[in-house]
Computed example of a mutant assay.
Amino acid sequence: MATNALVPVFDGHNDVLLRLSRSGSKTAAHDFLQEGSTGHLDLPRARAGGFAGGLFAVYVPSSTTGTGSDGKPEPLAPPLAEAQAAALELVSLLARMERVSDGGLKICRTGGDIRGAIAAGALAAVLHVEGAEMIDPDLNMLDVLHQAGLRSIGPVWSRSNIFGHGVPFRFPSSPDLGPGLTEAGKALVRACNELRIMVDLSHLNEQGFWDVAALSDAPLVASHSNVHALTPHSRNLTDRQLDAIRDSDGLVGVNFGTMFIRADGTKNPDTKLEELVRHIDYLVDRIGLDRVGLGSDYDGTTVPNDLRDASRLPALVATLRDKGYDDEAVRKICSENWIRVLEKTWGA
Score class of each variant (00 low, 15 high):
L90T: 01
V303C: 06
A5M: 12
G149C: 09
E343G: 05
D136A: 12
L201Q: 01
Y298I: 03
T67K: 15
I107Q: 09
R246L: 03
N14R: 10
L123A: 10
G39Y: 04
V7Y: 10
V212N: 00
V126Q: 02
P314V: 06
L215I: 10
Q147Y: 06
L230S: 02
D249W: 05
I114E: 13
L273V: 05
R246Y: 02
M1Y: 06
S223A: 14
P75M: 08
T3N: 14
K332I: 00
W338Q: 12
L88P: 00
L195F: 06
E98V: 06
N14F: 04
P75Y: 09
D102T: 06
T238C: 02
P73H: 05
H224D: 07
G24L: 11
S202M: 00
E206S: 09
L181A: 06
K332Y: 00
M198S: 13
E194V: 07
A57R: 01
D11S: 11
I118K: 13
A85K: 11
V341I: 15
E206D: 12
A86D: 14
G324F: 04
I153V: 14
L90Q: 15
D11M: 11
D200W: 01
F169P: 00
V317W: 06
P304T: 05
T27D: 12
A184Y: 07
D15Y: 01
E336R: 15
G103A: 02
A81T: 11
E74S: 14
R340D: 06
S160L: 02
S248D: 05
A191D: 07
V254L: 05
L6V: 08
A132M: 14
I287Q: 13
A315T: 09
I135R: 08
N255M: 05
E206N: 08
A122N: 07
R96L: 09
L251P: 02
L80P: 04
A132N: 13
M259L: 07
D281E: 14
M259D: 08
L307G: 13
L88W: 09
G324C: 07
D70G: 14
E98F: 03
F56L: 10
I280D: 10
L220R: 01
L283T: 02
S158W: 04
P168N: 11
F260N: 11
V9N: 02
V189D: 01
I280G: 10
G112W: 04
A86Y: 08
T302L: 09
I287F: 12
T3G: 15
G166F: 03
V254M: 07
P61W: 12
G164W: 01
G265A: 13
V292D: 08
R45F: 12
R115K: 15
H228G: 01
R22N: 15
V60H: 03
H228N: 04
T319I: 05
L188F: 11
G288K: 04
D327S: 15
